[in-house]
Amino acid sequence: MSRLATDTLAAVALRLAKMLLQAAAIVVLVFLLVRVVPGDTVDVLAAQGDLTEAQQQAMRHELGLDRSAGAQLVAWSAAALSGDFGQSIRFHRPVADMLATALPTTLTFASLSFAVGIVIAFTIAIAAVTSGTGKAVALVDAVNIWSIAFPTFCVGVLGILIVSVWLGWLPVLGSMVLPVVIIGIDNAGQIVKPLHEELREATAAAHVRTARAKGLHPIRVVVVHLLPTALPIALTLSGLVLAGLVAGTLTMEVLFGLPGIGSLLLNAIHGRDYPVVQAAIAVIVVALVAINAATDILHRLIDPRVSA
């Protein structure tokens, strides 16, 4: 094996190890934080109906809540690794089932928003570097300022007001179209500026100038020469969009009544359904950590200069 291949392999292994460590640390943190909340599962149940002290104790013993925090954490993690996240207090259903029901909505919503964001950002940035007019560049700034100035939940509320109430294009609730567009534009605004900078630098490179000078078709210049150069930065930026995507998914699911992980989590928090809270946050965070690791590794594979 060549030197480069061994190095790459080692780097990938190291990154995967870091990912596992991160996921484990965060799951422990989530577990401890949710446990800090005054009142446990049994307290919540006792508040709902009459439970004698003895019944409460028996229930605590049955659920393992009378064991130490460490023992509970180990038991919970072991069960979670095999896909068992315990029972929901409110719905008396396996949490894993509830997650499985909610996950497709969130995955669809997040990936659609992400795709829309990437398409908008690339279209505008490429138009800005190729057209040479100020209009496209102004659009880069406009989309960027839009995402800074307008928090997505505000845009969502105004969107409902305009599209549903004033224009009467019902039904908005339960439909993904409006929230996907809103989060897509927001995502685009967050990455379009650095993307534009990167593409502009790439346009100034000697090989691109040569390609243009010898009369290569502008679209070919973009596809063959510009996009490959912009790929690593695009990857980095997409990783950064994730955080915004999480916030956007949470608020949009609640606002537009989409039955995804975000709605599940919020309902669980309000209903003090701690097993669901814990599992939902753990799933979100582990997914984020894994996606971050995947982008880092891809970045490394695409761009051998990356040493991290």
Partner: peptide, 20 residues
């Protein structure tokens, strides 16, 4: 670096659940 893997909004949400 570990904590940064959680987006601020999610961390804040988790902390509000814990802190009240």
């Amino acid at each position: 670096d570990l904590i940064r893997a959680i987006p601020p909004i999610l961390l804040a949400l988790l902390l509000v659940v814990a802190l009240g």
